[in-house]
Simulated assay, not measured.
Amino acid sequence: MLQSLPVLARSIGRRAPAFARSVAVRQQFRCFSVSSLKAAELKYTKSHEWVKLDNKTATLGISAHAQEELGEIVYVDLPEVGSEYKAGDSFGAVESVKAAADVYSPLAGKVIGVNDTLSSEPSLVNSSPTDKGWMIKIEVGDSAPFKDLMDQKAYDEYVKESAH
């Protein structure tokens, strides 16, 4: 039976230094960074954003892959509640010690919530990109484009292919 990630990390921890343990766990068990239930609820874009849709409310953030590529996130720029975006518009940016990147909305809508915690704890994007590191919530007028986004399996394949 497969061990849970915290139990696995503890068992690896007895045999490896903390840095090696965290790298090994992330690399070997990346597929477990999102629970099976949550993974089924998320859709992804080619620009590495994720979206979770609940009725007409979409929650957006950057993928685990994107935050790994960026490295340690030190700043997150997010819009004001009430801002409106078309699909493909940049709604903010993330800055890391290595680079800065715009974040794009895959769906059109009006911002109804912003994760204000990220202004004081931008590292949540690294430690919990699909949970506590969410960025904005938008009220979506037309949710039809959601079905055209990639599921977890398609996104993983896209990342794998684009690495070559």
Rank of each mutant, 00 (worst) to 15 (best):
G71N: 04
V97P: 02
S22L: 12
M150I: 07
V94T: 08
K43A: 00
N126Q: 09
S96P: 03
K160I: 10
K46G: 10
E49Q: 04
K147W: 01
K98Y: 04
Q27S: 15
L78C: 03
T130E: 13
L149D: 10
V114M: 01
V7F: 08
A154P: 08
K153S: 11
H164C: 09
S22F: 10
D131R: 12
L60N: 06
V74E: 02
H65G: 10
L118G: 05
L2K: 14
A108T: 12
S143Y: 05
L5H: 09
E68L: 13
Q67L: 03
K38W: 12
S35N: 13
I136R: 07
R14V: 14
V7L: 13
D156G: 03
K46R: 15
D77P: 03
Y44N: 06
V111P: 02
S162Q: 14
P6I: 01
G109Q: 05
I73D: 06
G92D: 01
H48Y: 06
Q27E: 14
E121I: 05
A100G: 02
H164M: 12
G13E: 00
V81P: 12
E68S: 15
F91D: 04
A39Y: 03
S4A: 11
D148I: 04
G141L: 05
S90A: 15
G88Q: 08
K110T: 14
K153M: 08
F29I: 10
D148T: 04
I62N: 01
R21P: 04
T45Q: 00
E121D: 09
Q67D: 02
P17V: 09
G71A: 06
H164F: 11
H164W: 09
P122F: 00
K110L: 11
L37T: 15
I112T: 15
S47R: 15
S96L: 07
M1C: 13
S22A: 14
G141F: 05
E68D: 15
G88V: 11
S120Q: 13
Y104K: 02
I12K: 01
S90F: 01
V114E: 02
E49L: 00
K132H: 08
A20P: 02
G109F: 03
E139H: 05
S4R: 13
D77S: 13
V81Q: 15
K86V: 10
H164E: 12
D54M: 02
Y75M: 06
A16C: 10
G141V: 09
S35K: 11
R26L: 12
